[in-house]
Amino acid sequence: MAHIDNTDPLLQEITGPTPGQMLRKRVFGHQGLLIGAVVLIILLFIAIFAPLLAPHDPYAQSLMNRMEPPVFLGGTWEHPLGTDHLGRDYLSRLIYGARVSLLIGAVAALISGVIGTAMGVAAGYFGGRVDMVVTFLINVRLAMPVVLVALAVVAILGGSLQVVIVVLGLLLWDRFAVVMRASTLQVRGREYVAAARAIGASTPRVILSEIMPNIANNLIVVITLEMAHAILLEAALSFLGLGVQPPTPSWGLMVSEGKNMMLFEPWLVLIPGAVLFLLVLAINLMGDGLRDVTAPENRS
């Protein structure tokens, strides 16, 4: 046997990268994901450090300096992005507006994520009656027009940041439920789930430690998509005057407030519109990227 080159055949076999290493490699090879993540991190940073970054108080009115143009349209560096119809510094409002958008996106996605994931996983794992009830609820929810329902509820309860967040959180769980149900169904049939049950693992344990890690990638993708969805809906509600109430700086509200002057001062609409577009694009780029990056593992 002296001539056999590999004394330990196992040594040769375990040379591939770990799943974590493979993931890292794919993440750093995906441009869309990286661009989205960088933009999102910058916006997050701006939102968190808004008080330090904003040159002015976003609420301070100065009726003398109404609708000053931005620097690039002949304005002064005192107000780099100009001022609005009440003379408030546009840049500062934009910076504080990032807080509103990101907060609404994150919290609404979190609420609907918890509701939808719980329903979807329960339906997929237990099947039978639970599945019937959840599927029914999903269908009911899908039959409701989101914007209309949100408008109605906000009109009754009155618009505020909290109300908008809760309403959106309670309305956007459908995609979570559908995707998590399908993923759970797929994973539940795997033999490692049967093995964990045969070991005596409790149902919560099986769900949390065997099923959840294997459907988490899908969950992350849905979270990003729903975040973008919630941010856009908030903007729409605020634009219609039923979302965040003035004087809170919200990008949707800023578009709404600027729309009267749109023909004369288009930048009042274009600037908040552009950052909204940038944020949603960044989130979607990241969601798409995450899906690409996590998909190869599902295949193998």
Partner: peptide, 11 residues
């Protein structure tokens, strides 16, 4: 040759 009981240098 890596699995063969008769493997030798000439392989």
């Amino acid at each position: 040759r890596t699995r063969c009981p008769y493997a030798e240098a000439a392989c």
